[in-house]
Design a protein around this nucleic acid. Sequence first.
DNA 1: TATGAGATCAAGAATTATTCTAAAACAAAA
DNA 2: TTTTGTTTTAGAATAATTCTTGATCTCATA
Lengths: 145, 145
Amino acid sequence: MKAHSATSEDAITSHGIRLTPQRRYVYEALMEKRDHPTASEVFMRAKARMPSISLATVYNCLDALTESGLIRQVYCERGSSRYCPNLVPHGHFFCKTCGVVFDVPIDPAQEASWEFPEGTQLEHVEITLRGLCPACAQKQTTSLL
Amino acid sequence: MKAHSATSEDAITSHGIRLTPQRRYVYEALMEKRDHPTASEVFMRAKARMPSISLATVYNCLDALTESGLIRQVYCERGSSRYCPNLVPHGHFFCKTCGVVFDVPIDPAQEASWEFPEGTQLEHVEITLRGLCPACAQKQTTSLL
DNA sequence: TATGAGATCAAGAATTATTCTAAAACAAAA
DNA sequence: TTTTGTTTTAGAATAATTCTTGATCTCATA
Ligand SMILES: [Mn+2]
Ligand SMILES: [Mn+2]
Ligand SMILES: [Zn+2]
Ligand SMILES: [Zn+2]
């Protein structure tokens, strides 16, 4: 039985960083649910498969994967940052009540022309929507009765 | 000589929070340069005018002003959050090298229709552009020669 | 004007996510 | 196989923020 999918190995090596078991487990912890876990959530998932892995290593691996462009780091709020394995350009909805984060498709036309000073080098546009997720919006409406 | 502009007093009281000297100094510290200072930068500016003010109070005031909608809190990166007194809808450019933050006008059409699950309650769209500011882009190009 | 309730302030302790440090394990190159 | 550089690990250190608690202030009302 194979412990790792060939695709995650390929993904890592093809992004120019050395393949290590820890990086594989960390990457797979992100792929396995495709949500937006914090570093310590990733740590718990990876630990389930590799009990010896350390939190420091999870941070190192997340950094390496982010640097190499294989995953994205997302700052939705103060406190912990989150990680996203979805490489297709997209925005994030963040629920200010329960903290859930989910992907939001962005209209390609959205990548409009921005006006800023001559000489600025734009690398990346980040769109964050804030509000209440359906579950929290529901609860709030109900409690107002 | 008046210590405070009437407009900042009006702004605070009209936003439904109690006017206190500390809140006025904090608000004016933000208005005075219209950049995007961190809490401790605000603390230093406010302290210059009111030496007795404490950092905890600066945090309290920034919270109160943010809650009341008079200023905006901006998360551009891990580490300190920044504050912005510009209430006109706009995005932020963040230089990943020097950390400078500046306002970027957004096309009203940008406030497009977003697709997300039924029942979601959108409150606010946040747009962050990342890259190199003109000064840092210049330096980088030069050093590559 | 006196007084009581609640809001705000201040100092310092506590928290939390992250980053750093240094040593051991590992991997690839010579 | 030695050398060299990279990665992992545990634990210490850091930095921004939040919490706690008592003092102070403000406002409404007696
Ligand atoms: Mn995502
Ligand atoms: Mn701004
Ligand atoms: Zn929610
Ligand atoms: Zn810069």
